[in-house]
């Protein structure tokens, strides 16, 4: 049976949710999300250090989504918006959680998983070196992505990237990434 995105989305919506969204991930959506979360963090009177980290990591998470969303699975164009993704920002005990989800073609999984696994083995200093290496040696893609997003997230949060690939159909998985910012 294929992974049920709606059920998973509902599951994520437990706890203190700052923002939950499912639908098309556009540049305007990103602006709205950033504005909303920024003002909520201010309402919480959150320490500026945590506030900045959450904001920074949110920018990278959203823009990673924006740059890497695959086309929708065939015959699901009615059910899902174009450039479909999900996003939930919530506050748990002692930490903020940012979860994103998007369709990924099975053929793209291996490369992504390899990158995440590698990042998760690295120490803070290793991540710094990796960041600097990519910064100095890789060109920006046409879309403006630079391959630095996940490294930056891991570096800034100091936490492992929590991820899963859920089988959706023969050609697609749904990729879920959760990142945690300790407060």
């Amino acid at each position: 049976m294929s992974f049920n995105i709606q059920d998973y989305y509902s599951e994520l919506n437990e706890g203190e949710v700052l923002l939950a969204y499912k639908g098309s991930i556009s540049s305007d959506l990103i602006n709205n999300v950033l504005d909303t979360v920024e003002s909520k963090l201010q309402d919480f009177n959150e320490h500026s250090k945590v506030r900045k980290k959450v904001y920074n990591v949110l920018v990278e998470s959203l823009q990673n989504l924006y740059h890497h969303i695959d086309d929708l699975p065939k015959n699901y164009e009615e059910e899902f918006d174009e450039r479909f993704g999900i996003l939930v920002v919530s506050k748990e005990t002692g930490r903020y959680r940012i979860s994103t989800g998007n369709f990924i073609k099975n053929t793209h999984i291996a490369k992504l998983e390899e990158k995440i696994k590698k990042i998760n083995t690295l120490s803070k200093d290793d991540l710094k070196e990796m960041y600097k290496y990519i910064l100095n040696h890789q060109k920006l893609s046409e879309k403006g992505g630079g391959g630095l997003g996940l490294v930056d997230i891991a570096r800034k949060t100091g936490n492992k990237l929590d991820y899963r690939f859920q089988v959706f159909n023969k050609e697609y998985n749904f990729f879920i990434l959760s990142v945690y910012i300790s407060d």
Partner: peptide, 9 residues
């Protein structure tokens, strides 16, 4: 704030 896309620029 700056994002990783800006960091290269």
């Amino acid at each position: 704030y700056f994002n990783t896309s800006s960091s290269k620029c």
